[in-house]
């Protein structure tokens, strides 16, 4: 039994060591896990505490951080966040803190049950242009993405709902700057749906205001947003009574 567990622990550590999980910043990856400690918690459960490295294959970023979550009930995340500070282009930096998971050793560890969300601030001025910086091209500006991750570090549906609204705003701002009224109209529908999705998901109207405020954080963006609002004037929009269906998941 003890031998079997050692074998399992070895594979577990090995898997973590070589695991590079896809994450929201395409240029930043987490890996090279180093076991700091392990402890038997109960008959079947062990806790494992690790440091990890972040590797940056693109431009310098600031305040890099990562949050791990697990989708398996057999692998519980106890300490979920890692901080890396500033990471230069091409650098690999070890986290200043640890993450801890508890795993039920009766079930083989599946590294796919862990996922990382990485956030960082761009080192260049993300507010210099209307569209800002969206390193991973997912339609959500990096600064807003970081804010959303910090606000809802582990609630995936809430995070998705806020990102849906941020994405709809971004599309609207770009459409209006391109003078594309048809796309503005489409994005207005998306803003409406995303707003309703947030109210369904987080049940907190403040979230819609916060995303609006984070997105429209320069005069240029505020002015573009006003044009979007102006194009909505005189229009009627329905509220979807099946609020859940407004969410893109």
């Amino acid at each position: 039994m003890a031998k079997g567990f050692k074998h399992f622990a070895f594979i577990f550590t090995l898997l973590l060591t070589f695991l590079y999980v896809p994450n929201v910043f395409a240029e930043l990856t987490i890996g090279n896990y180093s076991l700091q400690s392990k402890e038997r918690i109960s008959r079947y459960e062990y806790s494992y505490t690790y440091k990890a490295d972040i590797t940056n294959t693109s431009d310098t970023v600031k305040n890099a951080a990562a949050i791990v979550s697990s989708v398996s009930v057999k692998t519980k995340v106890i300490e979920n966040s890692l901080s890396f500070g500033d990471v230069g282009a091409g650098d690999t930096i070890t986290s200043s803190d640890n993450f801890t998971i508890i795993h039920d050793r009766r079930i083989p560890f599946d590294p796919n049950n862990l996922s990382w969300e990485i956030t960082a601030d761009p080192s260049i001025d993300g507010n210099a242009a209307l569209e800002g910086i969206d390193s991973d091209n997912d339609g959500v500006r990096d600064d807003v993405q970081t804010f959303i991750t910090e606000r809802y570090p582990s609630n995936i549906n809430s995070k998705l709902a806020l990102r849906q609204l941020a994405n709809a705003y971004q599309e609207a701002l770009i459409a209006v700057s391109n003078n594309n009224q048809e796309d503005v109209n489409i994005s207005l529908g998306k803003i409406s749906s995303a707003t309703q999705c947030i109210l369904f998901t987080t049940k907190n109207i403040e979230d819609t205001r916060l995303i609006e405020s984070k997105m429209m954080n320069t005069i240029e963006r505020v002015r573009a947003y006003e044009e979007v609002n102006a194009l909505a004037s005189g229009q009627f929009f329905g509220i979807n009574l099946d609020l859940e269906s407004t969410c893109i998941r």
């Binding site: 707003t195 109207i205 819609t208 009627f236 329905g238 509220i239 609020l243």
Partner: peptide, 30 residues
């Protein structure tokens, strides 16, 4: 939109329950 949604959330269920044959449409006149 948030205001109109709040109104729908506040009243829809009660209205629908008391008026099952009525179609209710909540919306924004922006």
């Amino acid at each position: 939109v948030a205001s109109a949604t709040a109104i729908a959330i506040a009243y829809y269920e009660r209205l629908q329950s008391n008026n099952p044959d009525e179609k209710l449409h909540f919306g924004v006149a922006y």
